[in-house]
């Protein structure tokens, strides 16, 4: 599918009157469109395009820490980033983190929504409890989880101990730390995504479900053949926001681990952050930013396109 899939081609120009000649009509539409987009475009220009241009330029120059002036180096910064094992670790961690967070939190969100979409008093309470984590700032949540993850005396180990189990050094063991961060993120986000699924479920056509039931479809079949396809646009939406979140929200890494131990929880944004602000390597940070943004752009465009085609099928 191409761009045409995203911009639905069958749009009519409703605002215009048939008496106006096409040429002038076109010019008028163009002016109207531009003035509608202008407020957004100005803001984007200042806070998105300008920084991007700066990043791309920075990525092509070396600004040696303490050296005099900058010097054009072409793609050297990109080569240095790709050669940096910490960058490769961060990219790999981010992939694990993305898959490890998005899949369980979206699945749980769907399961919660299916279990709770009827509005009873009990369900209302449970929904509220599940949604609460998204009301806590990530910085604060991370500080609370600091205690939860404390080896020996923390909440997790305390109750695991009561069950006769031994916990881990949750954020201090390089094999476990990333998964602890994943756990925190799933806890924080699953209830948030659930809200969108509950809303989406209100739109699943009841008659189709009933028809399927009459035809002898069991619960799993109903879910698979009727409910899930109807929820497809919601899923695309949820996956898109989840994707943005896993790449752009790293407060918990900053608070809990600073990417450690031994880079085991280093994620791309935090890596960029370190290169820019701890290591004074603007060129490398810029190159890493450019690479991650390009990757992210490709993935999320895919998601949005899926979302769009879903919407078109429905319409």
């Amino acid at each position: 599918m191409t761009v045409d899939a995203i911009i639905t081609a069958d749009v009519l120009d409703v605002a215009s009157k048939p008496t106006v000649r096409p040429r002038r009509r076109q010019a008028r539409t163009w002016r109207l469109a531009l003035s509608l987009l202008l407020p957004s475009l100005l803001c984007l220009a200042a806070f998105t395009y300008l920084p991007v241009v700066r990043v791309v330029i920075d990525a092509l120059y070396a600004t040696p820490h303490g050296g005099s002036g900058t010097r054009f180096v072409g793609l050297e910064n990109f080569a240095r980033v790709l050669a940096d094992s910490a960058f490769r670790t961060a990219a790999w961690n981010n992939l694990l983190y993305a898959v490890g967070t998005i899949f369980p939190s979206v699945t749980l969100a769907l399961a919660f929504a299916l279990a709770l979409w009827r509005s009873t008093r009990f369900n209302a309470v449970v929904r509220t409890v599940l949604f609460f984590p998204s009301l806590v700032p990530l910085v604060a949540a991370a500080s609370l989880f600091f205690f939860i993850f404390l080896p020996g005396v923390g909440l997790l180990d305390y109750y695991l101990g009561k069950l006769g189990l031994e916990g881990f050094n949750w954020i201090g063991d390089s094999d476990v730390a990333l998964w602890s961060i994943v756990g925190l993120t799933v806890w924080k986000n699953a209830g948030y995504y659930m809200i969108f699924y509950i809303a989406g479920l209100q739109n699943v056509p009841r008659d189709q479900i009933e028809a399927a039931t009459v035809d002898g479809a069991n619960a799993v079949q109903r879910l698979w053949y009727v409910i899930l396809p109807a929820l497809w646009p919601t899923t695309a939406f949820v996956v898109t926001i989840a994707l943005i979140q896993v790449l752009t929200a790293v407060d918990h890494v900053v608070v809990l681990t600073k990417g450690g131990p031994s880079n085991a929880t280093n994620l791309l944004l935090f890596y960029i952050f370190q290169e820019a602000h701890e290591n004074f390597d603007a060129g490398k940070a810029a190159a890493a930013t450019a690479l991650s943004v390009a990757a992210l752009l490709a993935v999320s465009l895919g998601c949005l396109r899926a979302m769009d085609s879903g919407a078109r099928h429905e319409a």
């Binding site: 957004s40 984007l44 806070f47 998105t48 395009y49 920084p51 991007v52 990043v55 943005i244 790449l247 752009t248 944004l269 960029i272 952050f273 930013t289 943004v293 992210l296 752009l297 999320s300 465009l301 949005l304």
Partner: peptide
């Protein structure tokens, strides 16, 4: 427009 999705202020 979509470019903005990825470029949150903390990154820049």
């Amino acid at each position: 427009f979509l470019l903005q999705l990825m470029l949150v202020p903390p990154a820049l």
